[in-house]
């Protein structure tokens, strides 16, 4: 793990193995982009509101009979302004949400993730006899559907640098699309409180190049 300066860390959260601001997969990258856009918009709106508030505080109206400007405050700023901003944001968010859903495709790989207090078991559709504990192997550069469930309480599958999280619920199977563009390891953690062992309920995703993936499917973990 690389050390990085405090300032830089505050700015971008560089190098965090669990940082959503240091994305590696396409889903995480898209969501990080949403964040930066929303942050910029929010700062602008905050500045506007605080500016208006300051102006209102400093103002000393000359006569009590002045018009209230209810149209400006209520119709324009109160109603029209948020409606336009929120309509744009809602549509944008839903469009991206659609794009991140698991869709069928020729090179989709399916794996299973089974959570329990406090470990993860992973299985592989392409090698039914294969199972791994706390390390999920995937091919790099291919979309992977993780079929997530739980054997006991509610857990959540989350690899922050690859994609958002999805819960592991007993009796249900949820499917999450992840993808790691380059080979390497990515830190994962359960993200739903599950009792005293919650802190240690973590796992690793190991992304392989095509050759290493084939070898893994044939021979199991090295």
């Amino acid at each position: 793990m690389m050390a990085c300066g405090a300032t830089l860390q505050l700015l971008a959260g560089c190098q965090g193995q669990l940082s959503t601001l240091h994305p590696a997969g396409p889903a995480a990258a898209t969501i990080a982009e949403i964040w930066w856009i929303m942050l910029a918009g929010s700062v602008a709106i905050l500045a506007l509101v605080m500016g208006l508030l300051t102006a209102a505080l400093l103002r000393r109206p000359d006569s009590p009979g002045e018009p209230e400007r209810a149209g400006l405050w209520l119709w324009t700023l109160g109603l029209a302004f948020p409606l336009i901003v929120l309509a744009a944001l809602t549509v944008y968010g839903l469009k991206i949400g659609e794009r991140l859903l698991p869709r069928e495709g020729p090179d989709v790989v399916t794996v299973t993730a089974e959570a329990r207090q406090w470990a993860w078991s992973f299985g592989y559709a392409d090698a039914p006899d294969l199972a791994t504990e706390d390390i999920l192997h995937i091919p790099a550069g291919r979309p992977v559907d993780v079929r997530i469930t739980s054997l006991d309480v509610v857990h959540s599958f989350w690899v922050p640098r690859l994609a958002g999280k999805l819960d592991a619920l007993p009796g249900h199977v949820n499917i999450l699309r992840i993808e790691a563009p380059v080979p390497g390891t990515y830190a994962g953690q359960s993200a739903e409180f599950s009792g005293p062992g919650y802190l240690g309920h973590v796992f690793t995703v190991q992304a392989h190049d095509p050759a290493a993936w084939d070898q893994f499917l044939a021979e199991g973990a090295p």
Partner: peptide, 12 residues
């Protein structure tokens, strides 16, 4: 309230 962003920051 934006669904994809929520998937990242939920429970953090």
């Amino acid at each position: 309230a934006v669904v994809p962003f929520n998937w990242q920051v939920h429970d953090t």
